[in-house]
Design a protein around this nucleic acid. Structure first.
Lengths: 223, 223
DNA sequence: CCTTATTTCGAACATCTGTTCAAGTTAAAC
DNA sequence: GTTTAACTTGAACAGATGTTCGAAATAAGG
């Protein structure tokens, strides 16, 4: 899944195991630093310090600051989409899923993955940055929009009275609320009872958004 | 309302009218640039270009990049709080206000001000940055939290069955949804039918959040 | 009208930042 | 085992960036 389309000369040898490990360390460090400081606030030398790799190595594996950022976003995108679509399929296994179940299938995988693997919290913050900044619209469109469209269609099917525009707005509100919880959660995520409290907050988030979406649909239907 | 508390030597002369106008131009330009590029992405020389003022003048009036940012945030904070509290008082003029009215009093002034004075759109984006980044927590706490607490108390009074924690979460969800609309709106704000479409979106936003808050309270009351 | 605090202005400075480069090392392909 | 593509490493570079500084212009206070 290469990002750059232009003038790629083909490799003549498979990368070594050591090289692959180095690349992983570079991307992990970049993910952490970008998540903490944002794209403009982050420095290649911050990533050097975080990874322990020398300066030249960051560029060798990263391909420049901007391409490095894109690689970090791309690395976990497929896993995220997969988890969301699987959760949706699971919710629909026993017949039609209701609105909270569909919303939950979209939102919960992010939190579940964050609890299993702390690096996903960094990725979550990164996704918030990508979603909020027009500069990364192309990244959003490529990696997140296709899955979002699937869920949008499911939600529309559950709200037959709603306008397409209204559902889309409600979905945007929902995603922004999810990202707010996801990123604010980071600073209390490692606390003792964080896991228990977080589960309740996610339940609340899903209920909140489901109610908001349903009401918007109802009002649009009346008008 | 000075930001810096440390070692301020008192002025011996009133600032000239020309000086005040220059300061205003500097803050306007800084507001626009910070709103467009964020704190780290913005450059003093970007502000030089935007304002037309020479480099030294930015520092003379701004007091350094970080203090300049704080000044920009501070400048319109009081007007925003005032507009929100007035809207709340107006909503409660004829007896008790319901949840959508209270939420609307918090959210609508931002959009109303943006329509009257386009510079408020820049300020709105700035507020989104400040709210999203822990680095500016102190600014948030000083300029926005007091008013938010007033509205939080009003909402709690309207939802007697809800837990304090649950209402606070719902309020956070609501604010993040509002900021999402506010910042995404910027790119289509100057379109021809922008005003009409925006009004409908704000109605939708208020209904969405009111429904979400009410449902969260109901569920918490049941449990 | 004086005095001088304040403002205007841009050159200069030290530091930071992304990137390049070349020499040395490693390991894939045969 | 040999060859050499790929990787590792850090010094060096060009440009950007926040800040400082002093001289000149302006206007408040008397």
């Amino acid at each position: 899944m290469p990002i750059a389309q232009t003038s790629e000369k083909k490799r003549q040898r498979a990368p070594s195991k050591r090289s692959l490990e180095t690349r992983e360390r570079v991307l992990d460090a970049a993910e952490a630093v970008f998540a903490l400081r944002g794209f403009d606030g982050a420095t290649i030398r911050d990533i050097v310090a975080e990874s322990g790799e020398p300066l030249g190595t960051i560029h060798h594996h990263g391909g420049g600051k901007e391409v490095l950022f894109q690689q970090v976003v791309a690395r976990r995108a497929e896993a995220l989409s997969g988890a969301r679509l699987e959760a949706l399929a699971r919710a629909q296994a026993g017949g039609a899923a209701d609105l909270p179940a569909v919303l939950g299938a979209f939102m919960r995988p992010f939190f579940d993955l964050s609890q299993k693997e702390p690096r996903w919290r960094h990725y979550a913050r990164l996704v918030a940055f990508v979603s909020a900044d027009d500069r990364w619209r192309a990244l959003s469109a490529r990696f997140f929009d296709p899955t979002a469209r699937v869920f949008l269609a499911e939600i529309r099917a559950l709200l037959p009275g709603a306008s397409e525009q209204g559902v889309a707005e409600g979905f945007v509100f929902s995603v922004s609320a999810m990202l707010a919880l996801l990123t604010s959660q980071e600073r209390i995520g490692t606390l003792g009872d964080g896991r228990v409290a977080e589960a309740a907050q996610i339940d609340h988030l899903v209920r909140f958004c489901a109610a908001g979406l349903a009401t918007g649909a109802r009002a649009a239907g009346q008008a």
